[in-house]
Design a protein around this nucleic acid. Structure first.
Lengths: 196, 196
DNA sequence: GCATATTTGTCCGTATGTATA
DNA sequence: CTATACATACGGACAAATATG
């Protein structure tokens, strides 16, 4: 029962700004994005509520918020689960290993690109986008083939930015995003029977 | 306070099938559809909960469901309100000479247009955009000149949409947005020394 | 299939914070 | 500024559904 508690206690001190339910949602959202709560995990009211020091009622409110964000799914009398994009989650074999880390790094790269714009609105928007993207990454069959090519391109863009060549960076990024879109669509078309 | 209770007691007997929150939602939904709760009405947790014989926690769950259906809107620490349809509301404000109200209604209209796309992410993004837009409205010297012309155009777009003429609606909206951009820029250029 | 333990669903009472007259 | 009404959040309780042995 206590396995999923580890690490959550650290977030306790962070509580204190807006609505409790929303603050709890923020915490859980990042935990999910990090992969700390993998897709399919049931989120226990009792253990999480206890770990975060909030009442069950408040926690359930957070669950509802995240359910509306489509990050969680709710089953009557069974609780809430981290959304699973794949039909067979079991296919996610034990050692796709390091390439998942590459996917995470790619997400972080883009998060920081977005942050360069300096817009809190955009950051907030992209936070949810990346959280969902992270879920999508869990279902690709060949993460290496998907993620590896981007390492070099990330480096290119970064170099252009650091060298002050903003137009070049923008151009590289635009092509990058177009390619990504194509590939994501490809990957999705290859999978049938998805509930998405 | 007890005015909104009348008639709700009859629904008490209907409780008893699926999830309590959903049953309460059904009841409130029909009450709203009947016009029993007119747009803009605040729904009190205490009185409604008491009238239906459900606890506030359960009632809040119902409110969340209906908010997700976009039948209600939630304001922090103020409660939930029956959604106000924008075009009608704008006309009413215009009749009363409330030009700021017309501006608000215009914003609502566009929020609902955006909502038609069915993307929660976009909704969230635009929510912030509209909030800032409202702030910008506070600094215009002649709100009537700015807002009034849009009432008729909103009605046009709505009519096109309801009549299934999607291309026409899209065309109208595109021209609308171009005009708006020009006018907002005009208004802003007339004011110097603004920090934004 | 059965009995038990666990977990969710629902409710209450209350204390605190927040908005408004 | 005060008072009032209300939303927010808490903890405890019990019934009902589910999971487990």
């Amino acid at each position: 029962m206590a396995e999923q508690l580890t690490g959550l206690a650290d977030d306790r001190a962070l509580l204190g700004r807006t609505s409790t339910a929303e603050r709890v949602s923020d915490i859980l959202r990042s935990r999910i994005a990090e992969g700390y709560f993998p897709p399919g995990t049931r989120l226990s009211e009792d253990s999480i509520g206890g770990a975060l020091g909030v009442s069950r009622n408040t926690l359930r409110e957070s669950f509802r918020l995240l359910t509306h964000e489509r990050l969680l799914v709710h089953e009557l009398n069974r609780g809430v689960f981290v959304r699973v994009l794949a039909v067979e989650d079991g296919r996610r074999s034990a050692r796709e290993g390091d390439w998942k880390g590459v996917g995470t790094a790619n997400i972080h790269f883009h998060r920081e690109l977005v942050a360069l714009a300096g817009s809190e609105r955009t950051d907030e928007l992209m936070r949810s986008v990346f959280a969902e993207l992270r879920l999508a990454f869990h279902v690709v069959d060949d993460p290496r083939r998907l993620h590896e090519p981007y390492i070099a391109r990330n480096a290119e863009i970064l170099a252009a930015l650091e060298g002050g060549e903003r137009e070049k960076a923008a151009r590289l990024l635009a092509v990058y995003l177009e390619d990504s879109l194509k590939r994501v669509v490809e990957v999705y078309l290859r999978r049938v029977g998805d509930e998405g």
